[in-house]
């Protein structure tokens, strides 16, 4: 579904991504793990069209989308749940959800998607008229995911969905991602929480200093000595 080939990203002289290549098969969960500053957010933003790559190809369903502006990329069905949730705190839950459905591809399906989001996160329906800033961290993360789903994505990139959440909520979040995946959503999970994301992932990549250094199935990486030493402290 998504093939990233030899992607380079520079901020001025600093190189954030160095020949990054990976594949995402339709219907799978792919984890990209790495430490802070490894280039994870840069990678998501580049695929999303918010940063222009200096080199490389991003194939999505047969077309090269590298360099397309973000509103076009989103409208092709690539959504993202940004790091730190990025809900609009002064707007209501209803308004936040509405803003996810402004995409041309999603406009006609708004009511249906809303029903789907409420079925998945009943709490959002209860909080509909509350401002998003008054929600708990977990609820905000649900809102961020719900808002993304309003755009009718086929592939969603999650940037650190576990960041800043209590362990119980983190598990719930991962269950949600798995449930979405069962419904047919392709998921790219970018995480610092290596153990959790590798357990969830069909395929995983380790990103270090802007380079992919290891690749394999989630299980393979979990068993890999280098991963165990560097990320799992074993």
């Amino acid at each position: 579904m998504l093939q990233v080939r030899d992607l380079d990203v520079h901020y001025g002289d600093a190189q954030a991504l160095d020949r990054v290549s990976f594949d995402v098969a339709e219907g799978s969960i792919v984890a990209i793990v790495g430490a802070n500053g490894a280039g994870k957010t840069s990678l998501i933003r580049t695929i999303a069209g918010m940063i222009r790559p200096t080199h490389g190809r991003i194939g999505y369903r047969g077309a090269d989308i590298a360099g397309l502006p973000s509103h076009r990329v989103c409208n092709l069905g690539i959504g993202q749940v940004a790091e730190g949730r990025q809900v609009f705190p002064t707007l209501t839950v209803a308004e936040n959800l509405h803003m996810g459905a402004l995409l041309p591809r999603a406009r006609a399906h708004r009511d249906r998607q809303l029903a789907r989001v409420f079925a998945m996160f009943p709490i959002l329906e209860e909080r509909l008229k509350q401002t998003a800033g008054t929600l708990s961290g977990g609820e905000q993360q649900m809102l961020a995911i719900g808002r993304c789903l309003m755009g009718l994505p086929d592939l969603v990139m999650f940037d650190e969905p576990s960041l800043g959440l209590a362990p119980a909520i983190v598990h719930e979040m991962l269950r949600t991602i798995r449930a979405l995946n069962h419904e047919g959503l392709t998921c790219v999970l970018v995480e610092q929480n290596v153990a959790l994301s590798l357990k969830l992932a069909d395929r995983a990549y380790v990103l270090e200093n802007g380079r992919i250094t290891l690749a394999g199935t989630g299980e393979e990486l979990l068993a890999d000595d280098r991963v165990r030493q560097a990320y799992l402290g074993m």
Partner: peptide
């Protein structure tokens, strides 16, 4: 309003 609140988030939602 999305742009007013957070331009990066608006862009991430596919707003031109």
């Amino acid at each position: 309003m999305a742009i007013r609140e957070d331009e990066t988030a608006a862009r991430a939602l596919g707003i031109d």
